[in-house]
Amino acid sequence: MREGSWTAMYIASLAQALAYCHEKDVIHRDIKPENLLLDHEGRLKITGFGWSVQSKSKRHTMCGTLDYLAPEMVENKAHDYVVDNWTLGILCYEFLYGVPPFEAESQTDTFRRIVKVDLSFPSTPQVFAEAKNLISRLLVKDSSKRLFLQKIMKLPWIMKNADPMDKCSKLDL
């Protein structure tokens, strides 16, 4: 497989599954590697719905996992389904670089980096500019300006690297 294609395939699958959840007014609020499983055919499964909520209105509960929290949660502001879009950007970064983008020595420092969107990309030649573009469009402080999940499938990096007919690109909840 091409470099980054597994990441593209799993991000595309996860985006489709989260879009389905959002259509049903379900916000997961704790997407992280520990809540993603692979079956024997390599298909991704979402688990860990403990913080999930079905709601059409903004929520105020601070919940989730430190490195994956969106700025609006860290700042104790109301949030909606786009916290899951933020987390998709965190996962993409972590899949490509091996660490979450805002990880720091202390919880306070991590919170500060999240709120400032202190995002930097290591100089790794194999990471595509298109992948960095996707991450940058998801990790946006203003939640109303985050990339819509439905648009992810049309991005060049996803189209080039995630085969929609591949059995692994289907994600089951």
Rank of each mutant, 00 (worst) to 15 (best):
3 E>M: 12
3 E>D: 13
3 E>P: 15
4 G>P: 12
4 G>H: 13
6 W>V: 14
6 W>E: 12
8 A>S: 14
10 Y>E: 12
11 I>S: 12
12 A>N: 15
13 S>G: 15
14 L>Y: 14
17 A>N: 14
19 A>C: 09
21 C>S: 10
26 V>M: 07
26 V>F: 03
29 R>S: 14
30 D>N: 11
32 K>E: 07
33 P>I: 04
33 P>C: 02
34 E>C: 13
34 E>T: 15
34 E>G: 15
38 L>M: 10
38 L>V: 15
40 H>T: 15
44 L>E: 05
44 L>W: 12
45 K>H: 15
45 K>Q: 10
46 I>A: 14
47 T>G: 13
48 G>Q: 10
48 G>V: 07
49 F>R: 04
50 G>M: 04
51 W>P: 05
51 W>N: 09
51 W>H: 04
52 S>Y: 08
54 Q>E: 06
54 Q>R: 13
57 S>T: 10
57 S>A: 11
58 K>G: 13
60 H>K: 15
60 H>T: 15
61 T>Y: 06
67 D>V: 02
68 Y>G: 00
69 L>Q: 00
71 P>H: 01
72 E>A: 02
72 E>R: 00
73 M>L: 11
73 M>W: 00
74 V>P: 12
75 E>L: 13
75 E>S: 04
77 K>W: 01
78 A>Q: 02
80 D>Y: 10
80 D>E: 08
82 V>K: 07
82 V>G: 01
84 D>G: 10
85 N>L: 01
89 G>Q: 05
89 G>H: 05
91 L>D: 05
92 C>I: 04
93 Y>G: 11
94 E>L: 06
98 G>E: 04
100 P>V: 06
100 P>T: 06
101 P>M: 07
101 P>Q: 11
103 E>I: 12
103 E>R: 11
105 E>L: 07
105 E>T: 07
105 E>F: 05
106 S>C: 07
108 T>Y: 03
108 T>E: 08
111 F>Q: 09
112 R>K: 11
113 R>I: 11
114 I>R: 12
115 V>C: 02
116 K>V: 08
117 V>H: 03
117 V>F: 06
118 D>H: 13
118 D>M: 11
118 D>W: 09
119 L>R: 05
122 P>W: 03
123 S>H: 08
128 F>N: 14
128 F>R: 15
128 F>E: 14
130 E>M: 04
130 E>L: 01
131 A>Q: 05
132 K>S: 11
133 N>Q: 04
134 L>P: 11
135 I>E: 10
136 S>A: 14
138 L>E: 04
138 L>D: 03
138 L>H: 02
140 V>P: 12
141 K>D: 02
141 K>E: 05
141 K>C: 01
141 K>Q: 09
143 S>I: 00
144 S>C: 00
146 R>M: 00
149 L>Y: 01
150 Q>C: 00
150 Q>A: 03
151 K>Y: 02
152 I>V: 13
157 W>Y: 01
158 I>G: 01
159 M>K: 08
162 A>K: 03
162 A>D: 01
162 A>F: 02
164 P>H: 00
164 P>K: 00
165 M>R: 01
165 M>S: 08
166 D>F: 09
168 C>Y: 11
170 K>F: 06
171 L>V: 03
172 D>I: 08
172 D>E: 03
172 D>S: 05
